[in-house]
Amino acid sequence: MADLRVTIAGVEFANPLIAASGTFGFGREYNEFYPLSVLGGISCKGITIKERPGNPPPRVTETPGGMLNAVGLQNPGVDHFIREDLPWLSKQGTKIIANVAGNAPEDYCATVEKLNDTCVDMIELNISCPNVKQGGVQFGTTTEGVYGITSEVRKHCKKPLMVKLSPNVTDISEMAVAAESAGADAISMINTLTGMRIDIRTRRPIIRNNTGGMSGPALLPIALRMVWQASQKVKIPIVGLGGISTWQDAVEMLLAGATALQIGTVLFTDPYAPIKIAEGLSRYMDENGIKSLSELTGGVRPW
C-alpha cells in the first residue's frame, strides 16, 4: 500500500485530500456520507471576527465546466465557530484548517488571536477579501497587499500559517514570493477566478452580486499553470486546488508542484469524490512503484 501521508508546516495529514473552504461547511452535512476521517483535512467555511449575513440570492449558477458563486462569506463569526462547531469537528479524526477572512488587518489579527488557543491545526488566510481601508482593493492583488497582511497576521498567529492566493492577478508567483517572505509557512492556490453570467431575457446578471467566483473543472489548467509557476519561486509547500475532479487531476496537480490538494466544487457533482480520488491515487502509486507522495511533487518534466 502506498503511503498517502503528507506533512505541511509540521502538520501531518493522513492523505493529501483536504476539503476546500466554503464547499464543505463545517463538515456535518458530509458526515452523512462517510466519516470525515477519510479526508486528510478540512478547510472550514471562511470565518470573520463578527457574524456576516452574506449576499442576497441568487448566489450560485452553473457555467461551462464549472460554476459561479457569490455567497459573500456568510458565517456565524469566530466565537460561534469555536463554541459550536470546533468541539464536534475536532473529534472527527481529521485535521482542521480555519479559513480566516476580514475587511481590515485588525479583523484578521483579532480572529487569528481567538483561534490561537483552540485545537485548530492550521490557519488559512483568505486574502481575496476587499481591503476596506484601501477603498475596497483586495489584499491579495498586489505584492504590497499580500506582504502587508501576511506579515501583520504572522505577528499574531501562533499556528502554522497558510496564505491562500487569488488568481485574479497578473503574476501569481510574485504573490507567492511576497507571502513567503512575509513569513507564511505554506501557500494554498488557487481561489476562484472572477466571472459573470447574464440572463439574455431579462439582461440581468444571474448572480445577484453581478459577478461571482468561478470554480470547478474549467479552472484546472489555470490552477496547474499557476502552481507550476509559483513552485519554481518559493520553497514553502504549496497546497494545490482549483478544478480537481478525478485522481488523474490530482496526480497532475502534484506533478505541477503541489504537496497536498484541496477539492471543492467536485463535491457538488459527486459527494463521494474524495474517496474515489484517494483510491485512484493509491492505485496509481502502487502500479508505478511510487512509495511516497513526495516523489510526485514537482515531478513534471517540462520541455
Binding site: T23, G25, E29, G54, P58, V71, Q74, F268
Partner: peptide, 14 residues
C-alpha cells in the same frame, strides 16, 4: 432557489 450542494454546506441557496 438555485443550488449547488443541496445539503446545507455551501450556503448557495439563500
Amino acid at each position: 432557489e438555485r443550488m449547488a450542494c443541496g445539503i446545507g454546506a455551501c450556503l448557495g441557496c439563500a
